[in-house]
């Protein structure tokens, strides 16, 4: 029973971070209509930024959030402005050009990181990296709890932004119907640039929060990109609420898979869920909740 509850706790806490990754992806998905296959790699860039700040300047990873999020916001805007938006005007046979472009960006980001930092595993050791709180026999990793709290805070903030502000409404409008939004006087190219920036900033937050309890190497982006699209498919494409459920579900599934089936299968679990969702619940949780 303790193993079960412990797994449950670990899964939910990890799921909070996954939700943060998934929300960024689903926002981009909704507004741009593409899957951003460089999502995990943007997270990797944020993690290296955090590492550099900690290692050379001694800045705490939680303070580094204030650097990594704006930096990735700019990187995301740059990518959208100069690499993805021009593609809309290029006449080509295949409409998947933009997705392929994100694959190219992902490769370039990974290799630049390998160039600078080599392929070695790096980690950030803080005083709270291995600290844990105990409730009975169940341990709560301190870093994961803080990360979960941050993730909840950021998601709540994002919801406020999307629902209350003018810019947030414009983003939702473009995601619902791009052409209609343009007719209402919304500059959809600008909205796309901003959305990409927000998505990148969210995944940057996830990366920075994850670093104290994780390790870092250039190829870490790939697995997280895959997790992100599993979450997005699971939650329903373009659905922010769905992404939160999707993230927590994936966290739980991975935790239970690792505990009860075997560590080798942790990565497989996500892909199996992906296929099961396609088979039995195309449209994801969005179809059940209609949000």
């Amino acid at each position: 029973m303790e193993v079960f509850v412990q797994t449950l706790v670990a899964g939910v806490l990890k799921g909070g971070l996954y939700a943060l990754i998934g929300i960024g992806m689903t926002l981009i998905m909704g507004v741009m209509g593409i899957i951003n296959l460089a999502h995990g790699q943007m997270m990797m860039v944020a993690m290296y930024l955090t590492y550099v700040l900690f290692h050379y300047l001694g800045i705490d990873p939680y303070m580094a959030l204030f650097v990594s999020m704006p930096s990735l916001f700019l990187l995301g805007m740059f990518i959208q402005r100069f690499l993805l938006n021009p593609l809309m005007k290029v006449e080509s046979i295949l409409p998947e050009n933009q997705v392929l472009m994100t694959v190219g960006i992902a490769m370039v980001l990974t290799e630049i990181a390998r160039f600078i930092f080599t392929s070695n595993y790096l980690s950030v050791q803080t005083s709270y990296s291995t600290k844990a709180w105990y409730v009975g026999e169940i341990s709560f990793s301190a870093a994961l709890c803080v990360a979960f709290a941050f993730a909840a805070l950021l998601s709540a903030g994002l919801f406020g932004f999307l629902v209350k502000t003018d810019l947030g409404r414009s983003i939702r409008a473009v995601s619902q119907d791009n052409e209609a939004a343009q007719l209402m006087g919304i500059d959809s190219e600008r909205i796309k640039i901003i959305t990409m920036g927000i998505g990148a900033a969210l995944v940057a937050a996830a990366g920075t929060l994850l670093l104290p309890i994780y390790y870092l190497f250039p190829d870490i982006g790939g697995p997280f990109t895959r997790k992100a699209f599993v979450i997005t498919i699971l939650g329903g494409l373009g659905s922010t609420v769905g992404a939160i459920f999707g993230g927590v579900t994936l966290g739980l599934a991975e935790a239970f898979g690792a505990t009860y089936i075997g560590m080798d299968y942790e990565d497989m679990v996500g892909l199996i869920i992906f296929i099961l969702v396609l088979l039995f619940l195309p449209g994801g949780f969005k179809r059940l909740t209609k949000v």
């Binding site: 690499l83 021009p86 593609l87 290029v90 006449e91 080509s92 046979i93 295949l94 050009n97 392929l100 472009m101 694959v103 190219g104 960006i105 992902a106 490769m107 370039v108 990974t110 290799e111 630049i112 160039f115």
Partner: peptide, 19 residues
């Protein structure tokens, strides 16, 4: 850098030589 050039090639081909 051969993987890096590969990635750059993807980007350039899509932007300038999509067909």
């Amino acid at each position: 850098a051969h993987v890096l050039t590969f990635g750059l090639l993807v980007i350039f081909v899509i932007l300038f030589l999509p067909n």
